[in-house]
């Protein structure tokens, strides 16, 4: 870690991972060529999981990479960047993603609920980072882009309404905004 002039690039995120309590992959999205093969990826995930302290949020340095993580019950969320990356920036991505998921699952950030809403999680992930470039870190914006499942304009009978309505989403977003303002 000598003095390095950081590369000027928007490609800040190397990977976003969600691992379960056994270190198994639930979602893994790699944005660059650090790990091309599944085996390398899995190895990395295992190493990362082993290094993950049992606290709710922290930062891990591993193989010249920086990983910020948050965990809840049986899920571990990671955002990974190069070791020269701005950790605060990575954390910002992590929090945006996590909060969006949290809102989407109505604070039940648990594996079971996550699996039930996997489509939403995929969409949210897609909205947070695009090919390594940070797209959006504001959870309200992410939610508004994703959780639009029950668009009232489109009538569909067999849609089982597993999601909230727009009104609900907006309400919860407002709540969150209020809370963050109060803090």
């Amino acid at each position: 870690m000598d003095s390095i002039v950081l590369d000027v690039t928007l490609y800040a995120v190397k990977a976003i991972l969600i691992l379960d309590n056994d270190g198994e992959r639930i979602i893994a999205k790699y944005y660059d060529n650090t790990f091309t093969h599944l085996k390398e990826q899995k190895q990395f995930e295992k190493k990362l999981y082993d290094k993950t302290p049992r606290s709710s949020a922290d930062i891990i340095m591993l193989d010249s990479m920086t990983a910020v993580f948050r965990s809840n019950v049986d899920l571990n969320f990671y955002v990974i960047g190069s070791s020269n990356e701005n950790e605060v920036m990575l954390n910002c991505v992590l929090n945006g993603f996590y909060d969006a998921i949290s809102t989407m699952l109505r604070k039940n950030v648990e594996k079971k609920y996550l699996m039930d809403n996997l489509d939403g999680v995929f969409l949210a992930l897609d909205e947070v980072v695009d090919g390594g470039i940070i797209l959006e870190t504001d959870s309200t914006n992410i939610i508004s882009k994703v959780a639009i499942k029950s668009n009232p304009l489109i009538q569909n009978d067999d849609l089982p309404l597993s999601e909230q309505t727009v009104v609900q989403v907006l309400q919860s977003a407002k709540d969150q905004l209020k809370r963050s303002l109060l803090n």
Binding site: D119, F122, L123, D126, V146, I148, K149, N151, I154, N156, L159
Partner: peptide, 12 residues
């Protein structure tokens, strides 16, 4: 299909 979620899943 005109369903938004489905369409977005398709994009993805």
């Amino acid at each position: 299909s005109k369903d938004v979620t489905l369409r977005r899943m398709v994009y993805l």
